[in-house]
């Protein structure tokens, strides 16, 4: 399964690669990283229908995660991939908005990686 992680913090890449190193080594998961909403969209357009799961931060400079979610859900060709949102602010407003826009899950920072692994497995 190919997963695209969108976060403006570059160290997220190293973290994910280590946290999921067994899954990556086993070939169960393939990760790609984008550091902004704009880059994520561009990446998706370059690799159409490849990525089935998108994990995006909400609070990013420029295009926000919610805006990215809206664009993916409205313009991305079917079948729409699974989109999970991550935010440092676990407020209900963002949660409701994300759900309304069609997010499949709403996670708060700090990420519980075991929980995330389970969610990814269930998404498989």
């Amino acid at each position: 399964m190919k997963v695209l992680v969108v976060d403006d913090e570059t160290d997220v890449q190293i973290l994910f690669e280590q946290r999921f190193r067994r899954e990556i080594r086993a070939g169960e998961l393939i990760f790609a990283f984008a550091h902004s909403g704009e880059k994520a969209l561009a990446y998706l357009n370059e690799h159409p229908s490849e990525y089935v799961l998108i994990l995006s931060d909400i609070n990013m400079p420029g295009m926000s995660g919610l805006e990215l979610l809206r664009l993916i859900k409205t313009t991305y060709p079917a079948p729409p991939p699974v989109v999970m949102m991550i935010t440092a602010y676990g407020d209900s407003e963002s949660h409701d908005q994300a759900m309304q826009l069609g997010a499949d899950a709403f996670l708060t920072k700090p990420l519980d990686f075991n929980n995330l692994k389970e969610k990814l497995k269930s998404a498989l």
Partner: peptide, 11 residues
């Protein structure tokens, strides 16, 4: 502060 702390914990 939360962001770097998350990284510290995670790493």
């Amino acid at each position: 502060i939360q962001n770097p702390l998350n990284f510290v914990n995670n790493f």
